[in-house]
Structure formats: structure tokens, C-alpha cells
Simulated assay, not measured.
Amino acid sequence: MSLTDSQAIYVSRLGRGTLGLSVVVVAILAGICIGETPIPVATVLRTLANRIFGAAYAVDPIEMGIVWNYRLPRAIVAACCGSGLAICGMVLQSLFRNALADPYLLGISAGASTGAVAVTVAGLGAGVVSMSVGAFVGAVAAFLFVAALARAAGGGVTLQGTGQIVLAGIAGSQLFNALTSFVVTKSANAEQARAVMFWLLGSLSGARWPDVWLAVPIAVIGLFACIWYARALDAFAFGAESASSLGISVKRVQVVLIGLTALVTAVMVSIVGSIGFVGLVIPHAARFLVGVRHGRLGPTVALIGAAFLIAADVISRTVIPGQVLPIGVITALVGAPAFALILLRGRRRP
């Protein structure tokens, strides 16, 4: 019996989804097994069976502790951060019709870092405001500054489709990075300053189960919001006026999606620090694989982003024996050449 066209499309999508999830699962498993102390896959599976299903396999307590308390939450947080930041980059690139837009280049990540450092180091909020809330406030403030600067530089014209937003984002990033350095220099002692500067380059060393319970819901919310607004994001590819003519509430969609982008970026930055280039590179790789329709693009971006950041974390822990590199160093080594390729590709277009 032959399948109808709709059934064939469903089976194809199911197959791609299963393959993508399998890649992420394998990446998480690799993130658990690979490290300074290699752990066999069988030990990992027995540990998970013991902790989740109450099995009674014989597992070395030290290895069980490494798997459950350290590497598993670290891998899950890496997957959520990679997924969330990649989705943010995709949303910003679609809203602004700019291939170079992402939370890092638009200053949102730098603003989130400033807010987080102001809360943890300078004591802003007197202990009432959490690190994530401080990061969210900083992210929103940074984006408002960048948007106002871009509008002023463009003579009040729309930001969509112009290079002003990227240039303003670079200026905003520098400003908020300077504010972060000022807060650290003024308020932190030597030990705090060292820890903060390492964290600002991106670090998953402190990721534990409480971070998992924060990162997972935020990443899921970001993904489902992207799927919910897939039609609107497709419409923005033709410009804000075209989207409005198709019945899209342009202002409402922009406010919701930019606010959500600020929230996701702020939470991820508060957990792992400022990690650049994930939101820039991953959406372009996903478009090469599945095209530009956001119904398929969103889940693909999330899965590739998750696998990418897990792989970057594994490399950061193993490239130099006995030493852990900031994960932002690894993403920059991959992202900077990709950034150059995007620039060159855009220059060659007629």
C-alpha cells in the first residue's frame, strides 16, 4: 500500500526528528563519557538505571558521582544553552532580516553579563534580586540602547534590513563590556575578579542540577515560541510591511519575540557566562540543511545548537591535558572563521 503525500511528509519529518534527537542523545552520552577520567558507556548506562529506575547495578561510587552530579547536568545545561542561544540568533536574524544579527553582536549578551555581575559582585538588589533577574534587566537595557542608537544613526528609519543595528550592537557590546569591567575592578577582590573573568569567557564548570531545572524550561519555552510564531517569522522574510499585509501584528510579534530573546539569553548567560558566535553560526548551518521555513528551521537550529555546544564543551575539557579552557574560546575559534565566510558570501551577492 502506497503512502499519500501528507503521510510521506509526516514520515519524512518523523525520521528527521528521530535522527536529530539521536544525535543530541549521542552527544550527551559523549559529554558524559569523555573527560580527564574516561568513563565507559556501560558504567554511564548503569548509573542512569540506578538513579532513575532504582536498579541495583554494581557501580563504583566515585564514577557514579562523576556521572550523576557533574557530567550529566553539565551536558544537559550545555545542550540547553546551545539550543537557546541558537534559537535567539535565528529569531533576531529573521526579525531584522540581517544575517549578522545574534545576541552577542547586538549587545544583549554583554548587557546580560553586566546585569549578572552587578548583582553578584556589586550587590545590586541587596540580595533580593537573583542573578537571572539582573541578567534579564541588563539584556533588556542593552537592547533598548542598541535599538535607540541604531534608529538615531539611521535617521529614524526602520531597523529591519539595515546594517545600522549591527554597528549599534558593536557599540553597545563595547559599552556594556566596559561597564562590566568597571564593576569588577571597583567591587571585586582578586579571587572574585579571576572567577568572574573566567566565567565571562564561558564556563560550564559550575553547572549542577539546580541549573538544569532552570535551563531546560527556558530552552523549551524558546523552542515552542519559535514554532508557534513560525508563520510570522516566515512573513518577516519579506519585510515588516509584507508581514503586516498578511495579517501579522508586527509590533506585538516584535515585542514578544525580542523580549523572549532577552529572557533566554539572560538565563543562559547567568548560568554559563557570555558565549559568542553560537547564535550567529548555527542558524546559517541549519538553513543550509533544511531551508528557510521556520517550522522546520526552528527544531533543526535547536538540535544542532545543542550538539554543537556539547561538542565544544568536550573539546574545552580535553584539548589541553589537565586544564579546562573557557568554552567561549572554542566557540570563537569556530565562529570567527564562519563569521568571515558570511561576510564574504554577502559581498559576492549581486
Score class of each variant (00 low, 15 high):
residue 17 G to F: 13
residue 19 L to Q: 02
residue 20 G to A: 15
residue 20 G to I: 09
residue 21 L to P: 06
residue 22 S to H: 04
residue 22 S to F: 15
residue 24 V to H: 05
residue 24 V to I: 14
residue 26 V to Q: 02
residue 29 L to K: 03
residue 30 A to S: 10
residue 30 A to G: 13
residue 33 C to L: 02
residue 34 I to N: 04
residue 34 I to A: 09
residue 35 G to E: 02
residue 37 T to C: 01
residue 39 I to A: 00
residue 40 P to Q: 06
residue 41 V to K: 06
residue 42 A to G: 07
residue 43 T to L: 04
residue 45 L to P: 06
residue 46 R to F: 08
residue 47 T to K: 05
residue 47 T to S: 10
residue 48 L to N: 06
residue 49 A to V: 11
residue 50 N to I: 11
residue 51 R to H: 14
residue 52 I to G: 10
residue 52 I to R: 05
residue 52 I to Y: 12
residue 54 G to I: 03
residue 54 G to Q: 04
residue 55 A to I: 11
residue 56 A to P: 01
residue 57 Y to A: 12
residue 57 Y to T: 06
residue 57 Y to G: 01
residue 57 Y to L: 01
residue 58 A to L: 12
residue 58 A to M: 09
residue 60 D to L: 00
residue 60 D to V: 05
residue 61 P to M: 02
residue 63 E to C: 03
residue 63 E to G: 08
residue 63 E to V: 11
residue 63 E to L: 15
residue 64 M to G: 15
residue 64 M to V: 03
residue 65 G to V: 04
residue 66 I to F: 06
residue 66 I to K: 10
residue 68 W to C: 02
residue 69 N to L: 13
residue 70 Y to Q: 13
residue 71 R to F: 00
residue 71 R to L: 01
residue 72 L to K: 12
residue 72 L to M: 14
residue 74 R to F: 08
residue 75 A to T: 05
residue 76 I to G: 06
residue 77 V to D: 05
residue 77 V to S: 05
residue 78 A to Q: 02
residue 80 C to A: 15
residue 80 C to M: 14
residue 80 C to R: 08
residue 80 C to Y: 07
residue 82 G to A: 11
residue 85 L to S: 08
residue 85 L to N: 06
residue 86 A to N: 05
residue 87 I to D: 04
residue 88 C to W: 08
residue 88 C to K: 08
residue 89 G to I: 00
residue 91 V to E: 05
residue 91 V to P: 04
residue 93 Q to K: 03
residue 95 L to M: 00
residue 96 F to C: 02
residue 97 R to C: 10
residue 98 N to E: 04
residue 100 L to V: 01
residue 101 A to V: 09
residue 103 P to K: 01
residue 103 P to N: 00
residue 104 Y to M: 13
residue 105 L to W: 02
residue 105 L to H: 07
residue 106 L to Q: 00
residue 107 G to P: 00
residue 108 I to T: 03
residue 108 I to N: 03
residue 109 S to D: 02
residue 110 A to E: 01
residue 111 G to D: 05
residue 112 A to I: 03
residue 112 A to G: 15
residue 112 A to S: 14
residue 113 S to C: 09
residue 114 T to G: 07
residue 114 T to Q: 05
residue 115 G to F: 12
residue 115 G to D: 08
residue 118 A to D: 06
residue 119 V to H: 10
residue 120 T to I: 15
residue 120 T to A: 14
residue 122 A to F: 05
residue 122 A to C: 01
residue 122 A to K: 01
residue 123 G to Y: 10
residue 123 G to C: 08
residue 124 L to I: 15
residue 124 L to Y: 07
residue 125 G to R: 09
residue 126 A to Q: 13
residue 126 A to L: 14
residue 127 G to A: 12
residue 127 G to L: 13
residue 127 G to I: 12
residue 127 G to W: 09
residue 128 V to C: 03
residue 128 V to I: 15
residue 129 V to N: 03
residue 130 S to G: 13
residue 130 S to V: 12
residue 130 S to E: 05
residue 130 S to I: 11
residue 130 S to F: 10
residue 130 S to N: 10
residue 131 M to H: 08
residue 132 S to I: 13
residue 132 S to G: 12
residue 134 G to E: 03
residue 134 G to H: 07
residue 135 A to M: 10
residue 136 F to C: 11
residue 136 F to R: 08
residue 137 V to L: 15
residue 138 G to Y: 10
